[in-house]
Amino acid sequence: MSSIVEDINGHSLSSSSLEKIRSAAVSDLPLVSDGVRLGPCVTGVGNFIAVGLNYADHAAESGMPVPAEPVLFNKAPSCIVGPDDTVLIPPGSEKTDWEVELAIVIGERASYVSEADALNHVAGYCVCNDVSERAYQLERGGGQWAKGKGCPTFGPLGPWLVTKEEVEDVHNLAMTLTVNGETMQNGSTRTMVFNVPFLVSHISQFMTLMPGDVITTGTPPGVGMGQKPPRYLKAGDTIRVEIEGLGVQNQRVAAT
Rank of each mutant, 00 (worst) to 15 (best):
V105N: 02
G107P: 09
E108R: 13
E108T: 12
E108S: 13
S111P: 00
S111Y: 12
V113F: 06
S114L: 01
S114C: 05
S114T: 15
E115Q: 14
E115G: 11
A116W: 01
D117H: 12
L119H: 07
L119M: 15
L119D: 06
L119Y: 08
N120M: 05
H121Y: 08
A123G: 01
G124V: 08
C126Q: 04
V127Q: 13
N129G: 09
V131F: 10
S132R: 08
R134E: 05
A135D: 15
L138G: 11
L138A: 05
E139S: 13
G141R: 04
G142F: 05
A146Q: 08
K147W: 07
G148E: 06
G148P: 03
G148D: 08
K149Y: 11
K149M: 09
K149H: 08
G150N: 15
G150P: 09
C151Q: 13
C151M: 14
C151T: 00
C151S: 10
P152M: 00
T153G: 04
G155C: 13
G155H: 10
P156F: 11
L157V: 04
L157K: 07
G158F: 04
W160D: 12
L161I: 01
L161E: 02
V162F: 10
T163G: 03
T163C: 06
K164H: 05
K164P: 03
V167F: 12
D169P: 00
D169K: 04
D169C: 03
V170D: 09
V170C: 01
V170R: 10
H171L: 11
H171P: 00
N172Q: 11
N172S: 10
A174V: 00
T176C: 01
T176V: 02
T176A: 02
L177M: 15
V179K: 13
V179F: 15
N180I: 04
G181W: 06
G181E: 00
E182R: 07
T183I: 14
M184F: 13
M184A: 02
Q185A: 14
Q185T: 09
Q185G: 14
S188N: 15
T189N: 09
T189R: 00
T189Y: 11
T189C: 04
T189H: 04
R190A: 11
R190N: 07
T191R: 11
T191N: 13
F194H: 12
N195C: 09
N195V: 06
V196T: 14
P197A: 07
P197I: 11
L199Q: 07
S201L: 12
H202K: 12
I203N: 03
S204D: 06
Q205W: 03
Q205V: 01
M207Q: 07
M210T: 06
D213I: 05
V214G: 03
V214Q: 04
I215D: 07
